[in-house]
Design a protein around this nucleic acid. Structure first.
Lengths: 102, 102
DNA sequence: CCCAAGGTTAGCATATTTGCTAACCTTTGT
DNA sequence: ACAAAGGTTAGCAAATATGCTAACCTTGGG
């Protein structure tokens, strides 16, 4: 069906993902978006329709080196996938793992 | 598609969606930013200097009806206050669960 | 081999955010 | 009363994100 996208690879190959997250200081957003979309069983085009944009915009958001995320668009994506967007600040604690979202 | 998902409900039930969007219009970000800044013992002006902007921009971000948050600026604020920015998606459970951040 | 589905990318006009200045308000201390 | 600190707001140019079209790539099925 679909080609194996970067986000797909990130989702399926755990060690690849860990390397990726160390190397790039992304917040991992792109992978989270792709993961959320897949859980909602939507294609990029279907998600795009729900938030009144086009599949190219979704692809851009799921691309690994994108920097321009806005909370408003992230929230539209969340709602369209039946989820909540959660945003918060956390002080680093020694050795403690970051809160798990999903 | 095959089944009526939660997202479908959000999309088809207008009043439900409006309530949802109203409630989560501004995720409480402004309060979280101000709280983080206070925990870091910084004034708006001091925080502004650290991220190379001005106090008016910080005030705008802490104002309760602002809509234009970008992840990049939120992350700068987090780092300047010695914290991490956490972003994630969570599927809704029954009732309202308080976000587990700080 | 073709074709279609799903995804990616480039390039552009428009919309929105950002940084900035300058003014203003409120509180606190002297 | 005055001054200063901390915060708010308006208004603007510049920077950046968004929506869009149109092309392209890759994979799987017939």
């Amino acid at each position: 069906m679909s080609q194996k996208t970067y986000a797909d690879k990130l989702l399926s190959d755990k060690s690849f993902r860990e390397d990726f997250e160390q190397e790039y200081k992304n917040l991992g957003i792109s992978e989270k978006i792709a993961g959320l979309r897949h859980k909602a069983h939507l294609t990029q085009e279907e998600l795009a329709e729900r938030i009144h944009t086009t599949k190219s915009a979704i692809s851009r958001y799921e691309s690994n080196n994108y920097q321009g995320y806005s909370l408003s668009l992230l929230q539209k994506i969340a709602v369209a996938c039946g989820a909540d967007l959660e945003v918060g600040f956390a002080f680093k604690k020694n050795g403690r793992k970051a809160p798990a979202f999903n």
